[in-house]
Each structure stands twice: as structure tokens, then as C-alpha cells.
Amino acid sequence: MENNTEHSDQNNFTPLTVQEVDVDFLPIVYEIIRSVERDFHDNSAKARESQDCSQKVLELQKKFDVARAQIKRLPGIDYNKQDQLKQFEILKTQLRLKRELLQKYRNMCSFETSFK
């Protein structure tokens, strides 16, 4: 049990790629509607179809939940693209400034360390 929770925790934090996210809801919706609208003469077939249908509804529900969980694991979508690009620029500027600072320190003057 504990192992399961640990496993699920790990799953919740490992980043996913967009290709791994399953958002194909339409085929299941289509299947559900088709099975609802189908006419059956046989009662047993009707009952079986209705059972299948309810299972598909559950499956659809599960798919929605899984998709939500997967989206939460996608990296880099905590901001919209504009804000993200702003942050990207800020980081670039930071790196440039730090490089310049280091260069300034290095070119400032040379110390003779022989007396150490």
C-alpha cells in the first residue's frame, strides 16, 4: 500500500511530455452516443449495450481525471507564454550581467599571490 502511494507520488512529480497526455475524448463520446441511439429488438442485447454504455461513461470520466493529472505534470506551463518569455529574458539579462561582473573582476587588476 505504502509502495503504491510512493509510486503514485513519484508519478505526480516526474515531468511528462505533451505527447504522453491522452486527450482523445471525442471517440469515446461518439461511441457512447452511438450506443445510446442504437435501437435493439432484443432485450438482453439492450441490457448488455446499456451496461457497456455506462462502463464507457465511467471510462470517459476516468479519462478526464487522468488528463487533468497529466496536465498538472507538464513542465513550463505555470505561466502563460508571454510571462514565460519575460522570465526567460530576465534570466538572460542576469546571466549577461553576471558574466560582465566576472569579467570586470578578472580584468580589474592582477594580484601577486607569491606572498601568501
Partner: peptide
């Protein structure tokens, strides 16, 4: 698709962050 683009940007940002951390240590 947008999320995929952002994931790529995030990867670049992570690299940048690593470099910034390195420079921080140097400083």
C-alpha cells in the same frame, strides 16, 4: 501545442538557470 513550445522554453530556462548558478558560485 503551445504547452509543448513552453516546455522547450522551460528546458532552455533550466539550462540558463544552471549557468546562472555556476556564475553565482564563481562570483
Amino acid at each position: 501545442d503551445l504547452a509543448e513550445e513552453q516546455a522547450k522554453i522551460q528546458q532552455k530556462m533550466n539550462e540558463l538557470k544552471g549557468e546562472v548558478d555556476n556564475k553565482d558560485q564563481d562570483i
